[in-house]
């Protein structure tokens, strides 16, 4: 009986943990999952050790859902380990798929980040200015901690990923649907994104009409009309350039899409595509006027790469210092 059950693993790398919570959000569906699957590894929910995983035969796990990006050597080590032990590896959530919000760290160097985190914040109390090192000596012994990498990486930079289920977090229904598909053996081509091919605009019910913006605004600057397209109202909305699946969750509550479900099928650089689409809504034949309007978008890189900088063509900021 039990050997017919699906062997499941779940892991949380560099991320916020929201994806794990999303798994729990499938509610009573979890009982169905328990019916068909045994969970062999899920550190956030149960006490497992890496050595338990290391002891598994290669390909022991039928499916492993891995969320979070690769930020340090531990993330990578476990990702490689789980890859070896899993028949199917699913990158769960935007961080694992595209780098996610934490990928915004690629605007800074590792040193800048560590300096800020350990020395510069208001609440930091670190008079000796110690920054943790991968290897340090304590009482004559060598202490090892994972090494923080220069940049944030997506999972498939290191291991082969079978399926992608992006979202920050992915909607519980989508996770449930993915599990159903796995159980039923109805998975698409390896390498696929387990989402509809369309974009958020397709799911968004707002009326798109003007496609011309005279002034870009921040969400706090207006209470948007609930019927009209947010972009038409001057709010930078990533909906046109973002994969569907969320059911237009943000625009339904009057907030512009920020692009968390990642690029449309086949798109190489979501941020560049979104930027191109948004910029041309301000087109006029008056160059100075156009410049004025477009400059109202203060942080284009941060806006358009909010969830996908490590997945972009440049992956981050050019660092002269890194020479």
């Amino acid at each position: 009986m039990s050997d017919k059950k699906l062997k499941l693993g779940l892991y949380w790398a560099a991320g916020c943990g929201g994806c794990d919570v999303a798994v729990l959000d499938i509610d009573e569906k979890i009982l169905d999952v328990a019916e068909v699957a045994d969970i062999h590894f899920w550190p956030i929910a149960m006490d497992f050790k890496y050595k338990d995983v290391a002891a598994m035969d290669d390909g022991f796990l039928d499916v492993c859902f891995l969320n979070g990006a690769i930020r340090n050597s531990e993330n990578k080590e476990v990702a490689e380990l789980l890859r070896a032990k899993s028949k199917v590896l699913v990158a769960l959530g935007t961080c694992a798929c595209y780098g996610g919000v934490i990928g915004l760290a690629n605007f800074c160097t590792r040193e800048e980040i560590l300096e800020t985190a350990f020395k510069k914040t208001v609440s930091t109390d670190n008079p000796e200015g110690i920054i943790p090192q991968p290897v340090s000596e304590v009482d004559g012994c060598e202490l090892h901690i994972p090494e923080v990498y220069e940049a944030v990486y997506k999972l498939d930079d290191f291991v082969n990923v079978d399926y992608y289920l992006p979202g920050c977090p992915p909607r519980a229904e989508l996770i449930a649907k993915a599990i159903d598909a796995i159980v039923a053996g109805q998975l698409p081509e390896p390498g696929s994104v387990l989402l509809p091919a369309k974009t958020v605009c397709d799911e968004c019910k707002r009326e798109k009409k003007d496609r011309h913006v005279d002034e870009f605004k921040r969400p706090w600057e207006l209470i948007p009309d609930e019927e009209k397209c947010l972009l038409d109202q001057g709010l930078v909305c990533m909906g046109p350039a973002t994969r569907a699946g969320c059911g237009a969750a943000c625009t339904n509550v009057n907030m512009p899409c920020r692009g968390c479900y990642g690029p449309a099928e086949g798109v190489i650089d979501q941020g560049a595509k979104a930027m191109s689409a948004v910029a041309v809504t301000a087109v006029s034949t008056n160059l100075a006027e156009m410049e004025k309007v477009i400059s109202q978008v203060k942080d284009p890189a941060g806006t358009f790469y909010m969830y996908g900088l490590p997945n972009s063509l440049l992956r981050g900021r050019q660092m002269k210092e890194a020479k």
Partner: peptide, 21 residues
């Protein structure tokens, strides 16, 4: 007016490139 459309992208792209170092 294709060139005006490129100009619109260019204005935003310049800021973006600057942010990308």
């Amino acid at each position: 007016e294709g060139n005006y459309k490129m100009w619109a992208r260019k204005v935003m792209l310049e800021t973006m490139l600057q942010q990308l170092g």
